[in-house]
Design a protein around this nucleic acid. Structure first.
Lengths: 347, 347
DNA sequence: CTCGGTTCAGGAACCGATTCCAGATCAATG
DNA sequence: CATTGATCTGGAATCGGTTCCTGAACCGAG
């Protein structure tokens, strides 16, 4: 209710001085500064954000664009971003735009054009969509979390290597028939999905193994993993002894499906995931840990430095997930004596 | 880049006329209106939100306060809110403040005081926290989704009745030893948790059954449900024949735990949840469906009408969840002939 | 004592819209 | 034909801050 003029009046100074005292910019003598602060406090003065934005051109607000918030990864990233922004006193405007929804086009055309933010974090942008140029066109710093884009900074994990190491872990244990569960993602994971599949294939090829009827199409979720695993493990002949899942939720779905089918994990089937999801520990899931929350925090840091210095060239940060070995992986039956060389060491 | 003055100049009119033409308020002749719109289009004019806010006092922005974003319920509500806001051309500023985090106090003191929004949706506010008065103090319309507060509008499901009906469903099937899994929530679900527990107790009492060693403390999540069920079902003597779970994730955790213990669902143990979570179908879970996404949409509708008419008295909307019977519930062993009277009818 | 540089203060312009108000035009009415 | 009321327009004030710029006071150095 009370504006800076009221504060100035109460403190017995001019508007300009009051502003300087409160923002800390420019010369103000210590005693007057104290008087102004005192006045502001007694009046409960809170600067109007719109007035500040209008005058300074800074909104003190960061936009976050993501296709879902209901998926583990995205929600975790979002929480990381939020936490990092709060520390810095910045607001967060969410643009949750499912790619298939009609609202998405609107978001790009109307919302983002409003530039209600000093910078944007785009999570999970798929490259084939011609949306990146639109993002660049708004003329504000953009940082991506997962997703293509050489013109913007991007932070992501090394999907290829993650899947490769997951597969290598199984190969080292002695497995030969290893399937990949995932793939065929029709949704926003398509890109990540493909890279992980490729990592799996390469590991298999390097070991001279056939990446047999590897991947089973499925929704990237626990039910999807369940359904895919039921298909994959249904017939007992030629059944794989191990499975690389595209992510932990799918892996857990696969474990549950296996148990339902009477297949014991890890005795009859080893399962490895990627994520280190909240569920991983309960299911004793061996996995490659990515920390989405920290990716969110890191994205904010990147964005901050780009806002501070817009000429800064974009950087591409690739994180290496850490292998966490739990009890969902073991040597295949009859190979109990294989020496586990990889153990929990971080490669 | 180009402001309304440029548009006005190009169209050959005054700023005032240009503004009227574009906002549609006040008198403007059709031809000039067309000229202004044309000019705006060729210049790619987008009004500055801060200037508009400053002049009108409206931010075109809605704040959403929630304790987590990583929980199913909250994420779903959030998506519902977002979808409803996009339709209306409004932005969404997220205040994701974990109650235990240090940032939460800051949110209340700094962020909300900034009033960067025309209205606020608070999801899952617990009553014992003395935060409601703070929310009311900001002087903007507030709508709650779940949570106490007679001074603000609230939309929520009838937790008591939901748990009651879940329990009745089991009683009707012939179960006598029914346990409640959940309770003891140390986190933000405490309130909901308590009401559901109470509903369960009342149903048991009404049927003349003892609400025996009913609830097991657990985190409100799948791993929590798993752990609680392992405790509960560990000993075979006096084991319940049915379980009411505080929510679907816990229910699924319980199902998985039961199977691991060699307890067949529903033959040896019936399980009913509350939510109709994404996982419910995969686990054939009988549950009471609440639609968080629609609650979010509804909250936006409520908020809109309160913004339009601030004198509107707060309303309290209580939704009745629908019973969805799947295969996780059945008569207890030896009572296969019990007539299932409740079936899928909506009570 | 004067000069130059630093510190301090406030008036005024500005950010980019909306809106009040006064004046002009125009059609309809008595 | 004069009057009224509705329609149309643009100049100016306003929203609530920040910042430029000018002027005064103060300081130590020459």
């Amino acid at each position: 209710m009370s504006g800076i003029s009221d504060v100035a009046k109460l403190a017995g100074v001019g508007k300009a001085t009051a502003s300087r005292a409160l923002t800390g910019r420019g010369y103000v003598s210590e005693p007057t500064k104290v008087r102004v602060e005192e006045a502001a406090r007694t009046l409960g003065y809170v600067p109007s954000t719109s007035a500040v934005s209008l005058a300074t051109g800074r909104t003190q607000n960061i936009g976050v664009l993501m296709p879902y918030v209901t998926r583990w990864f995205f929600a975790e990233v979002l929480e990381g971003i939020q936490a990092a922004l709060i520390e810095r006193g910045l607001d967060l405007t969410l643009y949750d735009a499912n790619p298939t929804s009609a609202g998405r086009r609107q978001i790009f055309e109307h919302y983002l054009a409003r530039k209600r933010f000093d910078g944007l974090i785009a999570v999970g942008l798929e490259p084939e969509l011609e949306e990146l140029p639109l993002l660049m066109a708004i003329g504000k710093p953009v940082v991506g979390v997962v997703g293509e884009g050489s013109e913007t900074s991007v932070i992501e994990i090394d999907d290829h290597n993650a899947a490769r190491r997951a597969t290598d872990h199984l190969i080292t244990l002695g497995h030969r028939r290893i399937a990949f569960v995932g793939g065929g993602a029709e949704d926003f994971w398509a890109h990540v999905d493909r890279r992980r599949l490729e990592g799996y294939r390469q590991a298999m090829a390097t070991a001279g193994l056939a990446h047999e009827a590897a991947h089973t199409p499925s929704r990237i979720s626990l039910p999807g993993g369940y359904a895919a695993a039921v298909d994959l493990l249904g017939t007992s002949e030629g059944r794989p002894t191990a499975v690389v899942a595209v992510c932990d939720e799918v892996a857990v779905g696969a474990i549950i499906a296996a148990r339902r089918l009477g297949i014991s994990v890890p005795a009859d089937l080893s399962v490895v995931g990627i994520d280190d999801h909240e569920y991983a520990e309960t299911f004793a899931l061996t996995t490659l840990e990515q920390k989405p929350r920290q990716q969110g925090v890191k994205a904010v840091e990147l964005l901050m430095s780009e806002i501070a210095d817009p000429s800064r060239p974009p950087v591409h940060i690739t994180l290496q997930p850490r292998l966490i070995v739990r009890a969902s992986t073991a040597p295949p039956r009859g190979m109990g004596s294989v020496i586990r060389t990889d153990s929990t060491f971080d490669a």
